[in-house]
Amino acid sequence: MKQYCKTRRLLPGFRLTLGFTLFYLSVVVLIPMSAMILRGSGMGWGGFWKYVLDPRAIAAYKLSLVASMTAALLNVLFGTLLAWVLVRYTFPGRRLMDALVDVPFALPTAVAGLTLGNLYGPQGWIGQWLAPMGIAGVNSRFGVVIALMFVSLPFVVRTVQPVLETFEQEVEEAAATLGAGRWRTFFRVVLPTLLPSIITGFALAFARALGEFGSIQFVSGSIPFRTEIAPQILIQHLDEHETAGAIAVALFLLIISFLILGTINLIETWARRFQN
């Protein structure tokens, strides 16, 4: 990458810092990535598509997509509610509740998986109540959604919360004075303002859920066509000694990651413009 400096640099350290940044990224990201792409290109398009479009892999992408989407949507619901309650109301334990929202972010995913697997298992505190209802808490899509919801919850709350904080209550009050009912005010005035942050939160939660592996490994049971998620296909290939398959799927997931990053950037640009 040829660097070209547009403005006159007043501060020193451009070469040093950029050089180090690029060197570091090369060693950590770019070289391993190109190694993978190179290994992947060795198998040709035929080999690549054979692994990527394998029916079982497709079922796993679908589950990843649908479960992440479901988890993110549920989080939009509960996360917005949480943000609302935390910002708008006073009640004992509010600060504790606020702090607890960060738990899924701080808790290692393996620990989350272990605990959720136990909690929702047939003998677990929650699972034993689900079992008579015919709901399998673990080794089921239900369990996958629960785990994904757990790991991605903070994203919605923490994106909506600050916007709600700075929200001009005068606007609401004005709407109320003009005779708008509480619900109407909420849906006509508050929600549209919150929408960009909710969408951003949704996108972040979705992206986080899509990449999740640790907790799912403990709760999904990896049943082909039913509870397997995309990263597990990759692990499966590695377990089965199909390095080529693992690389093909990894490349595919890498491309998806870039697409998601691009989309999130677009959403954020849009949200920013909307908010201004």
Binding site: G117, G121, P122, Q123, A136, N139, G221
Partner: peptide, 8 residues
């Protein structure tokens, strides 16, 4: 583990 601990 699935059979014994998770009871499946």
């Amino acid at each position: 583990v699935t059979f014994l601990q998770r009871g499946i």
